[in-house]
């Protein structure tokens, strides 16, 4: 895999080079860049398969670089030091990222995932989705990318009725009466969707309050959804759920 590393700190570039050489022999680093202009030229010149892209680089971001490149014919693994707003958008787009300092095991996993995706040519659409989400100054209703086995669904958050955990999998129930199975744990989506107002009513249930009809007293506390479904509310969460719904 022809690869370019982009980071504004030299030490990080060197670290990544050493770790890739040691752990990922299939990765061939063809160029490194420490600013987005340099990176832009090198991507055009080398047409890489894979880009390791730092999110925050001084006043510019890795997203700025992607905006400069009209054709996204490469896979991107984002690298960031701290879980901030940028990484949030990356998660919404279901793209891959690494946290610094990079864990060798996580690096190996990310590279092998990227390899698989390069063969399936899955990426450009997700990258455009990500850039669209970021461009919108105040996203009216954000969308989320739900990666299924053979396609990626882009779903408006308003259309998600609820999510149900099934071990490390999550079922999405949409307003169109569709039910989608995603191979990520509910916890990950709870972290993404709670700031959007979703309620974790139960260890296995995440609910969009928009679709809640009423609070039933049965079994100590149950949410009745507009479509008649009943969602249990576990005891530790009751006060929180009542407070949120009472608003």
């Amino acid at each position: 895999m022809r690869t370019i590393l982009v980071d504004d700190e030299r030490a990080n570039l060197e670290n990544l080079q050493v770790l890739l050489a040691k752990n990922c022999p299939e990765v061939k680093v063809v160029a490194i860049a420490n600013n987005i202009n340099d990176a832009f030229e090198k991507v055009k010149l080398h047409r890489p398969d894979l880009l390791f892209l730092d999110i925050q680089m001084g006043k510019t971001t890795g997203f700025d670089l992607l905006n400069l490149l009209p054709e996204k014919t490469f896979e991107v693994i984002f690298v960031t030091a701290y879980d901030n707003y940028g990484i949030q958008a990356v998660k919404f787009a279901a793209l891959d990222y690494l946290l610094k300092p990079v864990d060798p095991d996580e690096l190996i996993a990310a590279v092998s995932k990227a390899k698989e995706r390069i063969t399936n040519k899955m990426n450009s659409e997700q990258l455009s989705f990500l850039l669209n989400q970021i461009k919108r100054s105040e996203p009216a209703v954000p969308k989320i990318a739900l990666p299924q086995q053979h396609e990626i669904r882009y779903v408006s958050i308003d259309d998600i009725v609820r999510c149900v955990a099934d071990n490390t999998y999550t079922f999405f129930y949409l307003s169109t009466d569709e039910k989608i199975l995603i191979s990520k744990p509910l916890k990950e989506y709870a972290d993404l969707l709670k700031p959007q107002g979703f309620i974790r009513a139960h260890q296995s249930h995440l609910v969009n309050p928009k679709y809640v009809k009423s609070w039933l007293k049965e079994d100590g506390g149950t949410l009745l959804m507009n479509n008649g479904h009943k969602i249990p509310v576990s005891k530790p969460n009751r006060e929180m759920v009542k407070a949120v719904l009472g608003k």
């Binding site: 946290l99 300092p101 864990d103 060798p104 095991d105």
Partner: peptide, 13 residues
């Protein structure tokens, strides 16, 4: 050193 550093980072994070 790399592995422990990542563990350390995860804890502080």
């Amino acid at each position: 050193a790399n592995r422990y550093l990542s563990k350390f980072a995860r804890l502080t994070r």
